[in-house]
């Protein structure tokens, strides 16, 4: 469980990036954090694994105060995958890249090997085991970054703009992976403005603006408020827009195209 207790954060140059944040994220939740540039999203996630410590207030991760724990200690529980793979891949080969985190956390050799094998298989990277990460395509690099973090099995996974520069197939894969992690009881937090990607996951949505949380509710409710959407620099998912324009409609927007099809076909055929 993650708890923010009236957290305010001011950068050394005097700019306040978070103001009075109160937030609780429970185990197994799927959360999307959205908002324009400079809204404070990246500052917020950096508080969860202790990269940044609150100026005022406190952040608790499973009851552990982030001010009294090291980044390494917290990262064991909270895995963050940052946006740009080129900012983290450095090893000679794919296998070593995955080992890096496991070694840092002091896993024994046999477990390291097991975990490496598991994540190579899970992320479909086995054929690249001995290849340099630099030789991989954009999508494969992204998967490797994910593999390198999930290898140490953190309870909480944070994805920072995971879909930037990714093509459709990669996005679909990513979506599958996220769903699988959720069934395993992991907490998944996504920072993204790719609304067409987020919508089918039907997360709890947190909208940030100017360092504050201005909305926090299930995704199906968030798009009722037009001024809110504008402030978050979002546009409506196409399925929501379609839902709103239909004269006959179910009681809530279609979460994905498949359910939209089922409903429409039933309505039209099921006379």
């Amino acid at each position: 469980m993650i708890t923010f207790e009236s957290v305010t954060y001011t950068y050394p140059n005097g700019i306040t990036a978070l103001r009075e944040i109160n937030l609780q994220i429970n185990d197994g939740e799927m959360v999307a954090i959205v908002g324009g540039n400079g809204a404070g999203k990246t500052t917020l996630i950096r508080h969860i694994n202790g990269l940044l410590k609150p100026s005022i207030g406190r952040v608790l991760v499973d009851g552990l105060d982030t001010r009294s724990a090291s980044v390494a200690q917290l990262s064991r529980k909270v895995g963050i995958v940052f946006q740009n793979p080129d900012h983290q891949l450095f090893s000679e080969n794919v296998e070593d890249e995955i080992k890096f985190g496991l070694k840092n956390f002091g896993f024994p050799e046999d477990i390291i090997n097991k975990r490496v094998n598991w994540s190579l298989k899970f992320f479909d990277l086995e054929e690249y085991r001995k290849l340099s990460p630099l030789m991989l395509s954009g999508g494969e690099k992204k998967r490797l970054c994910l593999a390198a973090v999930l290898a140490w099995d953190p309870k909480i996974l944070i994805l920072d703009e995971p879909t930037v520069g990714q093509d459709f197939i990669q996005k679909e894969r990513l979506s599958q992976i996220i769903k699988m992690l959720l069934t395993q009881g992991k907490t998944v937090i996504i920072v993204s403005h790719d609304i067409e990607f987020i919508w089918p996951l039907q997360p709890r949505m947190i909208i940030m603006s100017a360092g504050r949380i201005i909305a926090d509710s299930p995704s199906e409710l968030i798009f009722n408020n037009i001024s809110l959407i504008k402030e978050a620099h979002l546009i409506k998912p196409q399925l929501v827009e379609l839902y709103e324009r239909l004269r006959v409609k179910p009681n809530k927007p279609f979460p994905n195209v498949y359910e939209a099809r089922v409903w429409l076909m039933n309505k039209i055929r099921g006379r």
Binding site: D167, F168, I169, Q238, V257, L264
Partner: peptide, 20 residues
Amino acid sequence: IGVGIPTIVRLQNLLKEGGL
């Protein structure tokens, strides 16, 4: 091929497959 077919186009493709 994996082109990012827009959601509404995918929906129409699905409906067509289903006979609509």
